[in-house]
């Protein structure tokens, strides 16, 4: 048989079965259908979660919180005192939230060394790198090396603090407000704030001023 023939047959075979989902998809379907039948989960709640997390919730919500903290000192004080309570102003439920602040002398960076704990209700689904073993192990061992990979240079006299998230402790970094944004309103400031700056793999937002302005 020529290579061409075997390719054709393979393609026909693929065509016939192309609508058969991959094995893990079948396993998930089996799980969900059994859990729903037994009344343990509600399929509408599952679908609603998927819709919200694939379409609506992203780092925009976290960025709005950061912008508010930049312009409203009383909100900022509440945010650092009890983050979970403070973010309810935005209709956000985020249990066990601890907010940490970058300053001229301190850079904060967040990781989950165990799995992928993350403030999802404010930042959405974590990026691929946050879930990778390489980040989870190196963020603690070599934070400055990881930061370099993201193009972040932190001066030697700046302390790098790495926070290890757990199921019962989620972190949000408030990056420094860049100079030159003094007359910006809250909405415009929020557009400046990136996902990575709230995880701590980005530090200086000044480079974004031109893009946002």
């Amino acid at each position: 048989m020529t290579k061409h023939d075997s390719n054709t047959i393979a393609n026909i075979h693929k065509e016939l079965h192309s609508h058969l989902p991959p094995e893990p998809a079948l396993r998930v379907k089996a799980l969900e259908s059994l859990l729903v039948e037994k009344g343990i989960v509600d399929s509408e709640a599952v679908d609603a979660w998927i819709e919200v997390y694939t379409e609506e919730i992203g780092p925009k919500r976290g960025a709005e919180i950061v912008a508010r903290a930049w312009i409203d000192p009383s909100f900022k004080a509440r945010l650092f005192d009890n983050g979970t309570e403070a973010v309810k102003d935005f209709g956000i439920e985020q249990e066990h939230l601890q907010v940490v602040e970058n300053t001229a002398d301190v850079h904060n960076m967040v990781v989950c060394t165990l799995c992928s704990c993350y403030p999802t209700s404010m930042l959405g689904i974590p990026p691929t790198w946050y879930k990778m073993a390489a980040y989870r192990s190196r963020a603690v061992r070599d934070p400055r090396g990881v930061l370099e990979e993201f193009g972040v240079e932190v001066a030697d006299d700046v302390e790098v603090r790495v926070w290890d998230s757990t199921a019962e402790l989620r972190y949000l970094v408030v990056p420094q407000r860049p100079a030159g944004t003094e007359d910006w309103d809250e909405q415009k400031l929020a557009r400046l704030v990136t996902r990575n700056s709230m995880i701590g793999t980005e530090r200086d937002l000044a480079a974004r001023i031109e893009e946002v302005a």
Binding site: A25, V28, K29, L31, L35, A45, Y53, G124
Partner: peptide, 17 residues
Amino acid sequence: AFDEPWQAQVLALAFAL
């Protein structure tokens, strides 16, 4: 965040449970 729909379903089920 997801390469395939089942990946989102896994997280959604974990959240619901």
